[in-house]
Amino acid sequence: MLKIDDLHVAVDGKEILKGIDLHIGAGEVHAIMGPNGSGKSTLANVIAGRDGYEITAGSIRFHNNDLLEMNPEERAWAGVFLAFQYPVEIPGVNNVYLLKAGLNARRKAAGLSELDAIEFMQLVREKARLVELDDAFLSRGVNEGFSGGEKKRNEIFQMAVLEPTLAILDETDSGLDIDALRVVAKGVNALRSAERSIVMVTHYQRLLDYIEPDAVHVLADGRILKSGDKHLALELEKRGYDWVREEANV
């Protein structure tokens, strides 16, 4: 489904990703772990198409389309969803309205009819329950005045509504207390399916207690130094990242 080959990315002339290879099949959940500044968020942003990154080599193919040739909204229409590490506040823009515009744009791109207001609201209410998001949040401005935890839940709620085929969760767990983490994890687990792949970018093993990954990759110094199953995450938790670096250097 997602094939990243030999991806090199630079920011302001400085190389951040130095040759990433990552293949993710349909329905798989992959965790990408690594120390701060290792390039995890860069990878997430590059997949979603944010400006300001220079792709110096390599390719990203998604369902056999060249993702790098598409602009951010086209990627969204193709089914890519990014749960932001720092969700943006957009004052005055209704949360639900944004979702409706996004969902209908995607349906239109797929040649489907637009949902009417009633169908859409039904969908929205149902998904809001999934992440225990109060109805009041639906009608507020996008992330406007939300607490950190509310913003993260809102991201998962949006993911539930937009039903992407590839969801990238960029440090969705950071800044959450244990209850909020459970809620978020419950939402993500409910969205696991054979068609949907999920990439979790995270710093901590904690999230993986709740969402069990099919594969774990260690990203450090712009490269994937080691891949394994969920046991790798536990080992990282115990031993830190240095041993992986050392091993890779040998």
Binding site: D51, P72, E73, A76, F84, V88, I90, A101, A109, Q158
Partner: peptide, 15 residues
């Protein structure tokens, strides 16, 4: 803000 625009576009809304 560029980040506001990118957020909307990531949700599938044209620029």
């Amino acid at each position: 803000g560029d980040d506001q625009l990118f957020y909307c576009r990531q949700r599938g809304i044209s620029e």
